[in-house]
């Protein structure tokens, strides 16, 4: 089934990754580049979640209830979700850092055009 939830999510994720990279490569405005990176990150996160998804299973919350009812083996794999959470945190950190850089760069040159920052080369 092509249009399963997993596949749709995967496709969307991949599209977001590509869009993010596209933005990062083509946009001249630093803020837009940062947005591109956010898209890229988000795409990856969606891919991760999609890969960890198992149809019809429950959330990976281990409590006495599902231990008792035996639905513990019905939960989805918790690791991708944990990974996603971590990745989001890290992505947040990176985005923040980028924004700080953008701010400082703007203060330095009064410009947010990435082409103004090509002094270092060769």
């Amino acid at each position: 089934m092509i249009f399963s939830l997993v596949n749709i999510s995967l496709i969307i994720g991949i599209l977001l990754v590509l869009a993010g990279i596209w933005a990062a490569i083509t946009q001249k405005n630093i803020i837009k580049i940062i947005i591109g990176f956010s898209l890229f990150d988000t795409g990856i996160h969606i891919i991760m979640v999609a890969l960890g998804y198992v149809k019809n299973n429950t959330a990976p919350i281990l409590d006495s209830e599902n231990l008792r009812t035996g639905t513990a083996d019905k939960i989805v794999d918790p690791i991708p979700q944990a990974l996603v959470l971590t990745a989001i945190v890290i992505g947040l950190g990176v985005t923040a850092l980028m924004l700080v850089y953008a701010l400082k760069m703007y203060r330095e040159k009064k410009s947010l055009n990435i082409n103004s920052f090509k002094d270092l080369k060769w």
Partner: peptide
């Protein structure tokens, strides 16, 4: 200064992409 800022920004976007690929 503008040199280290520019260099740092390039560093972040490059390592960002690389890290994303690693994550995938």
């Amino acid at each position: 200064n503008k040199k280290s800022l520019a260099a740092g920004f390039k560093y972040i976007i490059a390592t960002g992409i690389i890290a994303g690929i690693l994550l995938i």
